[in-house]
Design a binder for these strands. Structure first.
Lengths: 365, 365
DNA sequence: ATGAAAGCGCTAACAT
DNA sequence: ATGTTAGCGCTTTCAT
């Protein structure tokens, strides 16, 4: 591949001049510039990123470390991807707007050795965005943070070594639970938890409990351990059903949408009506929830914005490493549909004028 | 940040020795090795990626360029992400298994200047995987290919300058259309196209036409232009309905699942029964299609495998640039559900033993 | 307006 | 077993 030297030689100038032309920097005579550009074009020259990074002491690359549930590899757990994928979009858009690139690393949540991966990753990037905080000890996080600026997405609020950008999980959960409790007055509620140690899952459960504490008449009859995957939601319902002795709860609150969706489907597979027999609500606001019948009542979190803000913050910190740590909580939005027991949306669906008579499809074979 | 020199100095050895220790390479006396490791640990030293790349003449980074529909930025078009996201997963898994990283770039399909972005990206990676071929002219592709190995995912079969890994879109479409035509015998069919110039969309339509040519009794009454987004699927149905004069087709075949899902929802919003009045089928096999009522009949393409194979091939080509271009077509799988008119799946859903009597939920307040 | 040359941090011959 | 040193390709003072 052609190098800067090749260009310089061919154009009969020094490498400095080619570099100048390349960056539009200095004043270079129009003649020279034209000649150099012509050579660059002819050679199809593209500067080597590694060499540039080395020289500039800056890679213009942000690392994005995302955690994936362990059971994702084998299952068709595509629903879960939505969250990280949207964050990724946000990060990429923000980074590329600045001309930077995004280096991604996916790691199983259960994976030990994740610190080693991130540690070596830190040598290839100018900063790191960590999503869904994988199981890093505070010491490990601190270690990473000493090498490169770090922003944690969906992490523990008030992290001391890194900036945090998260959705207002607590507030959203409070709003959702209040709606459920105050509008539908269940006597008994079951909660399907997120992965242990996932800060957003913890916050959501905390918000839920907070509201329940205000309403002693509503009883938490149990919790299931979940992993944010659809499959874990399904299993939660299955074990609930297996306890044939016990009655079903009036409502099931799930820590995220994929689990809630799977829960609804599993209940329906057992001919249990949602919300007739059991109300179900989730958290995320993914599109698939709207496809469900009944559509899922949930809390929408601004996934893409999470990525954007995280990247913005990372840029700020790269520019000025002295900045104080901040925690940004993005607002969430209660989305009331029918799975909680609310009636079909009042806003009327547009009725086709020609609905009346449609020719039925030709019968099969 | 500490450098290799710092380590060498502190350990009282040469940089070469530190480097050796770092890579487990040569024989280094255990004493020295221990001392060096201790220093590395103490300093929290991590080698600089740029310097390594420069020295090794290899970045150990694969670039992943994915195209996103233009209207994605504003809409909640999360369904579409599934395809690229799954491919991304496949690529990342394969790359990281080799210790390589993945640098991603998302670009609007309509974006001009995409060549410039990819061109400069080519300076930062050892090879490039291009998904959903963005609007690159063959000349541009050739230009890129001359700088770095390129594998095109979901691209034109038999590309001459790059390897291609794609799903068997033609075959899948043939299988799907045959099923529809031969089992449900529609008289009239409407087709919702994918984005102009998207090779996979083209292939699917070709497969469809191929089958229709075999069945002169089935009439293609029209096509709609789509962009693979849910919204474009919705609009296609809307304009179909707007032509109140014309009867609806017996079946609507959509070039992908998101459009098909939106089409079903739009029809249902107008109180048109699917598949009763109109059969609808898609292509992709995303999970959301199973949530639909009726579940979507479609063709499943191995999205993750696409990414894996692409990455494998890229590695092969990086190792040996002389390799002949190949085109790999991954098999697809017909997924028959109910939206085409087939009866509910024969396999019985597990019936809960305790289904009989459930306490109804307490009525709301 | 242009050139010369000193690094940037690391690897890998080649010496010893 | 360990040290020396010449690059890798680019940017950027400092001269001219």
């Amino acid at each position: 591949l052609p190098t800067l030297y090749d260009c310089a030689d061919l154009a009969g100038v020094s490498t400095a001049t080619v570099s100048r032309v390349l960056h539009g920097y200095d004043r270079v005579s129009d003649k020279t510039r034209a000649r150099v550009l012509e050579v660059i074009e002819r050679l199809g020259y593209v500067p080597d990123g590694a060499a540039q990074s080395l020289s500039l002491r800056r890679k213009e690359i942000v690392g994005l470390a995302i955690g994936a549930p362990d059971d994702m590899a084998t299952e068709i757990e595509t629903l879960n991807l939505l969250f990280t994928d949207q964050v990724l979009r946000g990060v990429e858009m923000t980074a590329s707007a600045r001309g930077w690139s995004v280096l991604i690393t996916v790691s199983q949540l259960g994976d030990q050795g994740i610190f080693k991966r991130l540690n070596s990753l830190s040598g290839k990037v100018d900063g790191l965005i960590v999503v869904d905080t994988p199981p890093l000890t505070p010491a490990e996080l601190a270690r990473l943070a000493s090498r490169a600026p770090i922003v944690v997405v969906a992490g523990v609020p008030d992290e001391t070594v890194a900036d945090v950008v998260a959705a207002d999980n607590f507030g959203g959960s409070v709003a959702l639970t209040r709606h459920l409790v105050e509008h539908h007055g269940p006597n008994t509620v079951h909660y399907v938890l997120g992965p242990k140690g996932a800060p957003d899952a913890t916050e959501r459960f905390a918000g839920f409990r907070h509201v329940l504490d205000e309403h002693p008449n509503v009883r938490l009859t149990g919790t299931s351990e979940g992993t944010f995957t659809a499959d874990s939601g399904r299993r939660a319902v299955q074990s609930l059903l297996a306890q044939a002795s016990r009655q079903l709860p009036d409502a099931i609150v799930c820590a995220n949408d994929p689990m809630a969706i799977a829960a609804v489907l599993e209940l329906q597979a057992h001919h249990i009506s949602v919300p007739g027999d059991v109300a179900v609500v989730g958290f995320d606001g993914i599109y698939a929830g709207e496809l469900l019948d009944p559509p899922l009542t949930t809390v929408r979190q601004p996934m893409r914005a999470l990525g954007e803000r995280a990247c913005d913050r990372l840029f700020e910190r790269i520019a000025n490493p002295q900045l104080e740590r901040t925690t940004v909580l993005l607002p969430t939005e209660l989305v009331v549909k029918r799975s909680c027991g609310c009636p079909a949306e009042p806003r009327p669906r547009p009725l086709s004028t020609s609905t009346a008579k449609r020719r039925p499809r030709a019968a099969g074979s």
